[in-house]
């Protein structure tokens, strides 16, 4: 009797797990547990997909730059197009002074783009739907841009917080507001990417669940909706990588060309 009950409970739990839209975001360990002190350094599915997307970037760009034929092959075209796309984006938003940081912004854009795009494959894990990953990327950008600003301008970088042409009475409030805006950069940068990816993937799972629960009679409507959502999600995956990279360029522009 009790074993029967347990079985039905387990089956129900399995059904809930299958239709639970948040189940896709679960991080689990692959392989042995690695612990250094209190820190858990085990290899998880998140790290697996990071490795896969970095390897994919390496493979695509190595193949693309191997043969420099005048009439480019498809993969060479892809590599060259993405190169010109990012270099144009940098020169448009941050100017010629930002050229030395091309390698960093290019790899950042490609990493976010490939992680987002790998997440669109069914059963794949979306690395960028975890806030700790995006926050780590964003805080790295924030700290390095701050360091670059202090190296380029010294203490004068603090002028960023004091806009010109403000009456003295309002100055304390304005300075506090400017400091809050500066500190909110990593948070808005990371939350934007994370929220977009997580919301989109949850919505796709929810509509997929509707298809199953409504069956062959009523399932066609959510099915067509989820086809449309897939297209939208691919757009969002590209757009968010683009926005992430372009905002990095804008922050870099603030650090390089101080114009307050």
């Amino acid at each position: 009797m009790s074993s029967n009950l347990r079985k039905t409970c387990k089956n129900k739990l399995k059904k809930i797990m299958a239709t639970n839209p948040m189940h896709q975001f679960e991080v689990y360990r692959i392989g042995p547990e690695i612990k250094i002190g209190e820190i858990d350094l085990s290899f998880t599915n998140a790290s697996l997909f990071m490795v896969i997307s970095s390897l994919a970037i390496l493979v695509v760009f190595n193949l693309g730059s191997k043969k420099n034929s005048l009439l480019p092959s498809k993969i060479q075209l892809l590599a060259e197009l993405s190169y010109t796309f990012v270099s144009k984006m940098i020169s448009d938003t941050a100017g010629s002074k930002a050229k030395p940081y091309f390698a960093f912004i290019f790899s950042l854009f490609m990493f976010v783009l490939f992680c987002n795009m790998f997440g669109m494959i069914p059963y794949a894990f979306t690395v960028t739907s975890h806030i700790i990953v995006t926050f780590m990327l964003a805080s790295f950008i924030f700290i390095s841009v701050t360091i670059i600003g202090f190296i380029k301008h010294g203490v004068g970088y603090l002028k960023l917080f004091v806009p010109s042409g403000v009456p003295v009475i309002l100055l304390p409030l304005i300075v506090v507001i400017e400091i809050i805006s500066y500190l909110s950069r990593p948070i808005s940068l990371s939350v934007r990417l994370f929220a977009n990816m997580m919301a989109g993937h949850t919505m796709m799972k929810v509509f997929g669940g509707f298809v199953i629960s409504l069956g062959i009679v009523g399932g066609w409507l959510p099915l067509s909706f989820s086809v449309a959502l897939t297209g939208l999600e691919i757009l969002v995956a590209f757009l968010q990588a683009y926005v992430f990279a372009i905002l990095t360029c804008i922050y870099l522009n603030d650090a390089l060309n101080l114009h307050h």
């Binding site: 909110s184 948070i187 934007r192």
Partner: peptide, 20 residues
């Protein structure tokens, strides 16, 4: 940037300022 990108940018920045 495209308008959808700007919309996302403005909304998240509004929230981020309050949180910070």
């Amino acid at each position: 940037t495209s308008s959808i990108g700007t919309a996302f940018k403005m909304s998240t920045e509004l929230v981020a300022h309050v949180v910070v």
